[in-house]
Amino acid sequence: MNFEAIKAIYRFEMARTFRTPLQSIISPVISTSLYFIVFGAAIGSRITEIEGVSYGAFIVPGLIMLMILTQSVSNGSFGIFFPKFLGTIYELLSAPVSYLEIIIGYVGAAATKSLILGVLVLATAGFFVPLRVDHPVWMLLFLVLTAVTFSLVGFIIGILAKGMEQLQTVPLLIITPLTFLGGTFYSLSVLPPFWHAVSLFNPVVYLISGFRWSFYGIADVNVAVSLGMTIAFLLACLVIVAWIFRTGYRLKA
């Protein structure tokens, strides 16, 4: 294992984040906090409680997931897309590093950033809505698994993207709708049976449901199923990324 290389990649990526704190840290925290203010404090008081939880508090886990997902995907994708775009990837390809080490470096850094943001947003949420965490260990587990999985999704997008446009639109067109329709703002139980069934094909449903369960003990699907689906999704991403590196697809001529 080339630990020095993992360290080098990880450090390089983290340095990139802290060079642009406004864009990397402050702006996602502020934009997510706006949801708490609008939906939690302002409108939330007029919406009835969901299974004994105030609406403002109900949406917090979903919003954290929304932010973790979008940030993980964008961090993961930019980290590898830029070297490809600038041509500096030659060095990574000619270095004695395995694909596993490259992934640990890039995805590890992207996931770390997301986790930092997740914790910051959680702390901010506490100012606006009454929070309670019933199962903190599960909460951390879901947070870490989601950050890693979606950083990996981003990493794959970053490798496959042919240009800036694809890099931006894939997350916007796929990740954002999946999150909004994945139960961030509502419980699946309010949906008609047909749409309820359709929603179960959305992987984000399982992340949000499991994450929300760790807060309030309420869930749309059983927490074990949530965990299983999250891990399955992570494994699927690993298989794809292993194939990419083995064949050099979109990386090597």
Partner: peptide, 14 residues
């Protein structure tokens, strides 16, 4: 300095 040190790390050297 950072970019040259980074290269050394990528090649597995302390």
């Amino acid at each position: 300095w950072a970019t040259v040190s980074h290269s050394r790390g990528l090649f597995g050297l302390r």
